[in-house]
């Protein structure tokens, strides 16, 4: 949030904090594609701008151990079926950063296809941004809403009961519009669906 909004100086201590917390971890699983994109695209650059050699080295050593949730399961662990069951129809919104920065490809779809009783509906114009964009949503609320209205119309058009994604920020935006317009479509993070075991959702 800080770095993307232009608060570059303020973002550096947050990177240091992240490194301190996770430097010894074998793997770091992040349930947000846009957070992982921020780390991969900018952390090294931020550390280099800071100039502390030890800090740079630690960032470089930690980054290869940071994974987005679906990447970790499918690409690293080779798991597609986590044993989940979810008797609902679902549509998947490939968030911009998962799609265009992390290139997670069909990893999330593979996971969803392996969920028992789940019906997956293709989202029209799925690659279009939902209009969240961090502080964009409040700095440009009218454009953000116009983009959201298109996204939510596509979601509703699928007839799915649930819309899912790898980013809670996008889901917060999509939910905000759906709920305001009185839609019954629910938003769930992919991890929440994979945690379902077939009881009442």
């Amino acid at each position: 949030m800080h770095y993307n909004t232009g608060y570059h100086r303020e973002a550096v201590p947050l990177v240091r904090r992240f490194v301190e917390m996770f430097r010894d971890a074998e793997a770091v699983c992040v349930p947000s594609a846009s957070c992982v994109a921020m780390m991969r695209e900018h952390y090294e650059m931020m550390a280099e701008a800071d100039g502390d050699l030890k800090f740079i080295a630690e960032v470089k050593s930690l980054l290869p151990r940071v994974f987005e949730f679906s990447e970790l399961l499918v690409n690293c662990l080779g798991v597609e079926d986590v044993g989940a069951a979810f008797a609902h129809s679902v549509t998947y919104h490939p968030s911009c950063h998962s799609l265009r920065m992390l290139h997670v490809g069909d990893a999330p779809v593979k996971l969803l296809r392996s969920v028992r009783d789940l019906t997956l509906f293709e989202l029209p114009q799925k690659e279009q941004c939902c209009g969240f964009g961090g502080t964009f949503a409040v700095k440009n609320p009218d454009v953000s809403l116009a983009m959201l209205t298109e996204k939510d119309a596509c979601v509703v058009q699928t007839g799915a009961e649930v819309v899912t994604a790898l980013d809670n920020s996008c889901l917060m935006q999509i939910y905000g519009g759906l709920h305001r317009s009185g839609s019954q479509v629910r938003t769930m993070h992919l991890a929440e669906i994979l945690a379902e075991t077939g009881g009442a959702a």
Partner: peptide, 13 residues
């Protein structure tokens, strides 16, 4: 103007 974007990356692509 630098804020007139969601940083979705479609332009770069």
């Amino acid at each position: 103007l630098p804020y007139a974007s969601t940083l979705c990356g479609a332009c770069y692509e």
